[in-house]
């Protein structure tokens, strides 16, 4: 009986809180926030009509797309397969939230940061296969561009994540430990503390640059590139496939930024208590604001420029931070 209850709890975690439902709401609210912020930067108003200050606009968009009965797509696109991949990506991201200490039901184990890295990799594969799998020129360009960047940003994100977790939870390398009981607070000697902070800063720089390219924010928005390749990887999709792809994108941004914000500012640690969750959401919005402001003050890079940029700065820095995190 007990395993069944445990399993049902896990399903609840994955589908409701902090999984699918929570991530969806967080993702769509942050989409609204992002759009408002960008609109301010560009002297526009942004979403306005649906809900107070237009906050329900992203929800309305997704709702409309999800319940369209007809999926119009390209001549060769295996639409149902792509639909499955997108849903798999969303569910994998939702399931990986079970590793975060947001509810008393969270799971922790030694080395579970690797589980997180490989579980969320499903989302990246889904993203690149949406484009490549559409079998059409524009989405193909988008998919190629995403897959090319994936070459660098996946290792960078993984390396900097491991080095941050290595600093915060040196013995267990558990994501939950790093978030709920960060070891940086226990550092005794000033030298050790300096090493810790240096690692976190280097890893944070490389992580945030790689994050911009993983989530296709401004200087790295080459896979969608509205003005150039007509929405890129999304060009052949419509209806539920399009809605879910947008949702996948938003969920990915919010999950990674949430994780990043709480690893970067480990004080106060997140615990399964309401106040600490509010605090971590505040951290989330602060980091999101900074990321969006930095991102949207830049123009789009070309693919080879982006690849060079990704290799030159973040890859190098992340390896240095990994080395630092192992020397303590």
């Amino acid at each position: 009986m007990e395993p069944l209850i445990e399993f049902l709890k896990l399903i609840f975690t994955a589908l409701v809180y902090p999984g699918l439902a929570f991530l969806t709401i967080l993702g769509l609210v942050s989409q609204w926030y992002r759009r408002k912020l960008i609109a301010r930067l560009q002297n526009r108003v942004g979403p306005k009509y649906v809900g107070p200050a237009g906050i329900l606009q992203p929800f309305a968009d997704i709702y409309k797309l999800l319940f369209v009965k007809e999926l119009v797509t390209g001549a060769y696109t295996p639409a149902r397969l792509i639909l499955y991949l997108v849903i798999l990506g969303i569910v994998a991201l939702s399931a990986s939230t079970a590793l975060l200490p947001l509810t008393p039901l969270y799971i922790r184990a030694e080395y579970d940061v690797l589980v997180f890295i490989y579980l969320t990799f499903y989302a990246s594969i889904a993203m690149s296969l949406i484009g490549l799998g559409s079998v059409s020129p524009y989405p193909g360009f988008g998919g190629v561009r995403y897959a090319t960047m994936l070459l660098v940003f996946e290792p960078v994100i993984a390396i900097s994540l491991i080095s941050m977790v290595k600093v915060l939870a040196p013995n267990t390398l558990s994501l939950a430990d790093a978030l709920s009981n960060p070891g940086i607070l226990r550092a005794q000697q000033p030298l050790q503390w300096i090493f810790h902070v240096a690692t976190i800063i280097l890893a944070a720089i490389s992580f945030s640059i790689a994050l911009l390219s993983k989530t296709m924010l401004k200087p790295f928005d080459i896979p969608e590139a509205e003005t150039e390749i007509a929405g890129g990887y999304l060009a052949e999709l419509s209806g539920p496939a399009l809605g879910l792809s947008i949702l996948l994108h938003e969920v990915e941004i919010s999950l990674y930024v949430f994780l990043f914000a709480n690893l970067l500012i480990p004080i106060p640690p997140i615990l399964p208590a309401p106040l600490s969750i509010v605090m971590s959401l505040i951290k989330y919005f602060i980091v999101l604001t900074i990321l969006v402001l930095v991102a949207y003050s830049m123009g789009r890079l070309k693919l080879d420029q982006a690849l060079r940029a990704l290799i030159k700065v973040p890859l190098l820095l992340s390896i240095i931070s990994l080395a630092l995190s192992f020397t303590i």
Binding site: V72, T73, I87, P240
Partner: peptide, 13 residues
């Protein structure tokens, strides 16, 4: 979702 949606194919965009 898959059972509910029909798929209509058009020319490549």
């Amino acid at each position: 979702i898959s059972l509910r949606t029909r798929i209509r194919r058009t020319e490549l965009y």
